[in-house]
Every structure is written in structure tokens, then in C-alpha cells.
């Protein structure tokens, strides 16, 4: 298409705009690279000293210059998976309710309410967790669960004054639910109405329609959403540090204290006394970076496969 010739000032302006926007985009890319570089650089000293043994070492003793992330990786994994196992089904169920069942008026109120739960800062959720939720858990929920399913080692005797991996897992659940709920609602909204009608015209009940049509059609999107939620749970520092109790051992019972990568980082970074401790904390940060990027890339990859399948449809 032949464009009219532009005046010089226009051409210069165009050039400037293109360079400015291009530069901004380059900065975003650079930022990501810089973050990774900075974090890996910071962990250099610790990596030199401990190597990959850092991942399995379970001692963390600043006074003895001994650092290992084993306990923290365990705590991160346990609380993250715990949160995902609760939050994914609950969030998806909320998405189904909002997308398929709620009358428009109810949806218009509850949808934003659920999303606003995600807007409450983690420091407040964590504060609420340690002062309100954790005492309640110790007094009521934990003994109850112990007496009914106590044969599972996860649900041992209530131990602490409330701070526990159990509390941390629940707090993370609360933080992940709104993420999964709002994305899965949007996913269900994209399922063509014709498919839903096709299913009900075949004499299917609502649940049969959900199980047979809605869930399979959105499966990979839901999986991607769950990974996003997991990534959020694994990386959360503040709320977890408030309720998990900064434990130093690997315990099978969820009612014991524990600690996660992000939580240890938030807890000790300000007070790190020497270079090795700071570097070890950076090492934790590097692990978090890898986990964060990994879960996100995985979600992207699943999401893209989903998009490709759709495009072929």
C-alpha cells in the first residue's frame, strides 16, 4: 500500500516513537535477564562452597557457616502441593458456579467479591492467619482431624501454638483460590454455548454436561491455571513466614512447624550477618526464581498446546 510521503518532522517523529517503544520493550527483556543474573551472581559464594549439595543439606546454622535448603524445599513442596490440592478443585468449582449456575445478579456480585479476596495483601492474610485462623485450627480443626484421620501420619497430634505447615497450607489455599476461580470462570465462559446446548439437548443432566463437555474442553487451560496458582503458592513469602513458625526440621505431621524458601528469605534477609549467609539466601532466591520461571513456562506451554488444539478445531 502506497503511503503518502510524509514531512520530515513526521518521519523524525515516527522514528522517535518507534525507538522509544522499542527501547521500553528491550528494557523489559533486559530486566528479566538482569534479575536472573543478579540473583545468580549473589548466590555465587554459597554455590562455590556448597554446590548442589545445598539442595539436600538439611542444616541451616548461620553460626556454624552451615547452610542447606533441604528442609526448606520440603516445606515449600508440602505447603504448595497442599494448597494446590485444596485450591484447584475449590477454585474450579467456584468457576463452574459463576459461569454456569449463578443467576446474572449473583454472578455480578460474587465474581468481584472473589476477585477482591485476591487483592487483599498477603501481609494482612498472614496476620489474620496467625491471630485468628491458627488458634482456631489448634483448638478445633486439628484435634478433630487427628481423631478421625490420625492414622495418616500427616495429621499427627496438634503441636504448636498455631504456627504450622497446616496453617501455612491453608493460608496459601485462601490466596490461590481466587486466582484459580477467576481464570477458570473465564475459561468456562469461552466454551461455546452451542456445545452446552448440544449436551443438554441430548438429555444430559448439568453434571453430565460439566463432566462430559465443560471439563474436557477446558482441561489444559485448567491445568495451566493450576500451575500458575502453584507458582504463586511456592513463591509466597510474607504470609507463610507469618504462620509457618520458622521450623528447622523435616516433620511428617502437618501440625509441626516448618519453613519454605521464600519464608526463610523474608525472615532472615534483613538480619543476615555475613556474606555467606546473604549469599546462601540469594541461593534460595535463585531456586525460587527457577521455580517461578519453571511453573510459569509450564503453564504457558500447556496453555499454548490448548490454543493450538483450539485453532485446529
Amino acid at each position: 500500500m502506497a503511503r503518502p510521503r510524509l514531512r520530515i518532522s513526521d518521519r523524525v517523529g515516527d522514528r522517535l516513537l518507534l525507538s522509544a517503544t522499542g527501547l521500553a520493550s528491550a528494557i523489559a527483556v533486559l530486566l528479566l535477564v538482569l534479575i536472573a543474573w543478579q540473583v545468580f551472581k549473589g548466590s555465587g559464594t554459597a554455590f562455590h562452597k556448597f554446590g548442589f549439595g545445598f539442595l539436600t543439606g538439611t542444616t541451616w546454622k548461620p553460626n556454624f557457616n552451615q547452610y542447606g535448603a533441604g528442609t526448606l524445599l520440603f516445606g515449600t513442596f508440602v505447603t504448595g502441593v497442599f494448597a494446590l490440592f485444596l485450591a484447584a478443585p475449590i477454585g474450579i468449582a467456584i468457576g463452574l458456579y459463576l459461569s454456569l449456575m449463578a443467576p446474572p445478579r449473583v454472578r455480578a456480585i460474587i465474581g468481584p467479591v472473589v476477585e477482591m479476596l485476591a487483592a487483599i495483601p498477603s501481609v494482612i492474610i498472614g496476620f489474620w492467619g496467625i491471630l485468628v485462623l491458627a488458634p482456631f485450627l489448634v483448638k478445633h480443626a486439628e484435634p478433630q482431624l487427628h481423631s478421625t484421620v490420625g492414622f495418616i501420619p500427616l495429621f499427627g497430634l496438634p503441636q504448636t501454638n498455631g504456627a504450622s505447615m497446616f496453617a501455612a497450607g491453608l493460608i496459601l489455599t485462601i490466596m490461590v483460590i481466587p486466582i484459580v476461580a477467576s481464570i477458570s470462570r473465564d475459561l468456562f465462559d469461552t466454551v461455546p454455548r452451542e456445545l452446552q446446548e448440544g449436551a443438554s439437548a441430548l438429555g444430559a443432566t448439568r453434571w453430565e454436561m460439566i463432566r462430559g463437555v465443560m471439563l474436557p474442553t477446558t482441561a489444559s487451560g485448567l491445568a495451566a491455571t493450576s500451575f500458575l496458582g502453584l507458582g504463586r503458592a511456592l513463591g509466597e513469602a510474607i504470609a507463610v513466614t507469618q504462620v509457618i513458625g520458622a521450623g528447622t526440621k523435616i516433620n511428617t505431621s502437618l501440625y509441626e512447624t516448618g519453613d519454605t524458601l521464600a519464608s526463610r528469605l523474608a525472615n532472615q534477609f534483613q538480619n543476615a550477618t555475613d556474606q555467606l549467609q546473604t549469599s546462601s539466601l540469594f541461593y534460595l532466591g535463585a531456586l525460587l526464581l527457577i521455580i517461578g520461571l519453571g511453573s510459569n513456562l509450564l503453564a504457558q506451554w500447556i496453555g499454548r498446546r490448548f490454543a493450538v488444539q483450539k485453532a485446529h478445531a
Partner: peptide, 13 residues
Amino acid sequence: LLNGLPSIVIGIF
């Protein structure tokens, strides 16, 4: 990816 980074990692950066 930037959005998915744990905020504490951005803090130490």
C-alpha cells in the same frame, strides 16, 4: 514471566 516471579525475588534483585 516477570509477572510470575515471586515478589521476594524482585526484592533481592
